[in-house]
Design a binder for these strands. Structure first.
Lengths: 345, 345
DNA sequence: CTGAAAGCGCTTACAG
DNA sequence: CTGAAAGCGCTTACAG
């Protein structure tokens, strides 16, 4: 549903020309007084400013950008704003963007279908750049992203390398390995991995590092379960799948905290398991809920601030560069020990 | 820090004129084939389209909007994206905006100071409209909002009536009253209200309705505490303030769920209180955590979808109208009973 | 249905 | 330092 816009507004927008008339100067003069660093004499600047406040004039940024061939608009495309980690990421991103004199245009697409429809539209808008946090983006869409001229960087998960997209993420692979070491050191033996949705374009290095280290250590093979989505409820369902039989794992590494929390709650409340004695649960992200009283979740914390700062610095360089090349930036994660893994003996 | 933009990009943007040349038609023709409902013969449309895909042409929406005198850009200004309710609101808002063919420009300002700096900037950007969810916005800023020509609607909380701003919110006053009735019916006697930050421009009708009904019923006067911010930690601190002495309340109504959850956790874990037997806790919003296992929080649910749909429908009408008048829309809240208030006897 | 022209509001070489 | 002019990429009366 698109509304019609009625152009008969009574008050016409006051324009630079109006100010020029009022101040008795040329349009160029008023433009100059509003572009930092341009050369205007204090006298004319003063007259312009005076006229401008009198008329309530403000330069029209959109029009400005059409002349300058860039709009200082960068998009943020997100598929799961319901996940607190992404909400925090968007917050940091828009702050960092503001500091770089960009504005953040937010696009939300919850399903692969919406993603498929929306991406071409976004590209059409010809933003200066696009930041993507949508691990469930279909491959075809990633291809159109790779083919476009507008700089794109993925955040939160590395894009599969063959895609040729820039990304900034946490070193998931290394963190996955470290989680195994922690678990083994604390005496757990039957490890399991709970992955999120398939994530056509996002790598799966969290689980891979985990599995790799398990193999190196010649531990019994891990059980893999995969949640259909990253939600509290899905975490609970995974617990049902994993904990229902006798040979259940004694430690599970979850792809993210919301899954972990859902898992934890049914492990305790439906199966009466004692965490961390009967079962260890470790998450990923360190969302606020992880440190709340009932959870005290041991998890790997992503360096959110650094990652988001990096992401906008990367995209801002790509925007400024004449021939941007895809880059990937990996920042180290850090295990935060709380109460869902046994303490050292 | 502002990055320089290097304009020497090798590939020039392909423009409508390029397509016109390639197709052997006028620029008007290509413009027409890209504006729905314009009159072009199938033949020329076809040639244009063919040339367009060959060259990879896409109309430049920003330039388009300068001619059309509106950009289809509406801002969302938010001060607490860390609160899940606001995150969900932004999600719905951006979806609804997309459906109305608007784009959402996101602004984040965590402090009154940032708000004060950012609002004039936003207005300068001359967006078509602005949606504000920032109860902690200083009064002066609200005044500049009221004085501007760009349509503005506040969401989530009603703006104080004297401000002359449009808003859509839940009927907080009524819900506050209903919470008292519920609590009294279930046998609680010493009621308390835990408010959030002062909120210079947001009304305080949640607490007022609550207090009003308490007076009507001639119950003992309520205790009022006010958290410095809406956070889990602040909720915990409020519990310390309220539960430390003998004459503690036996029911507390919290301004929102994140406060309520923080309160609940320290009430149980630090004070060993049995909720709901020793103490009732009711929240506001119905964020996802409210229905999680450890909480099962009784809370008043705001009709999020309806509110956000209403908000964008309101602003889109104001954008379309030649003389928009401030309107306020109140939707009913609904108490969701879970486990933090005793069941009926 | 179609094109030539003028315009959106602003900026930026170009002369002076 | 300043103005007249041309331009950003697109659209929309105006004629035909």
């Amino acid at each position: 549903m698109v509304d019609m816009v009625d152009d008969d507004k009574l008050e016409r927008r006051v324009t630079g020309a109006d100010v020029a008339n009022a101040a008795g100067v040329s349009p160029s003069a008023v433009s100059r007084t509003f572009t930092p660093g341009a050369s205007v004499s204090p006298a004319t600047r003063d007259r312009v400013l005076r006229a401008a406040v009198a008329l309530g004039y403000r330069p029209h940024f959109i029009a400005r950008s059409s002349r300058e061939r860039h709009g200082n608009l960068v998009g943020i495309l997100i598929s799961d704003l319901g996940n607190p980690w992404y909400a925090m990421a968007v917050q940091r991103l828009s702050q960092a963007l503001q500091e770089h004199a960009f504005h953040a245009v937010l696009f939300d697409a919850n399903t692969p279908d919406m993603l498929t429809r929306i991406v071409p539209l976004i590209l059409q808008y010809q933003l200066d750049g696009l930041l993507i946090g949508a691990p469930d983006m279909p491959l075809i869409v990633a291809d159109v992203c790779a083919g476009t001229a507008t700089p794109i960087v993925m955040f939160g998960r590395l894009s599969k390398p063959e895609l040729g997209l820039s990304s900034v993420a946490c070193d998931d692979h290394q963190s996955g390995r470290e989680v195994v070491d922690l678990l083994v050191e604390r005496g757990y033996q039957r490890l399991a991995y709970l992955g999120g949705e398939a994530g056509p374009i996002a790598d799966t290095r969290r689980g891979e590092g985990f599995a790799e280290r398990v193999r190196e250590l010649r531990l019994p093979p891990i059980t893999n379960v995969s949640a259909s989505e990253s939600s509290y409820a899905a975490g609970g369902r995974a617990a049902d799948a994993l904990l229902g039989h006798a040979q259940r794992p004694d430690a599970v590494f979850c792809q993210n905290d919301v899954l972990a929390i859902g898992f934890l709650d049914v492990a305790r409340n439906r199966y009466g398991l004692n965490v961390p004695d009967d079962l260890a649960v470790v998450g990923f992200d360190d969302i606020p809920a992880a440190s709340q009283f009932p959870y005290q979740l041991t998890t790997v914390q992503q360096p959110l601030d650094a990652m988001m700062t990096e992401a906008v610095s990367l995209i801002s360089h790509q925007i400024a560069s004449s021939a941007p090349v895809p880059e990937t930036r990996l920042l180290p994660g850090r295990i935060i020990e709380r109460q869902t893994v046994r303490s050292p003996v």
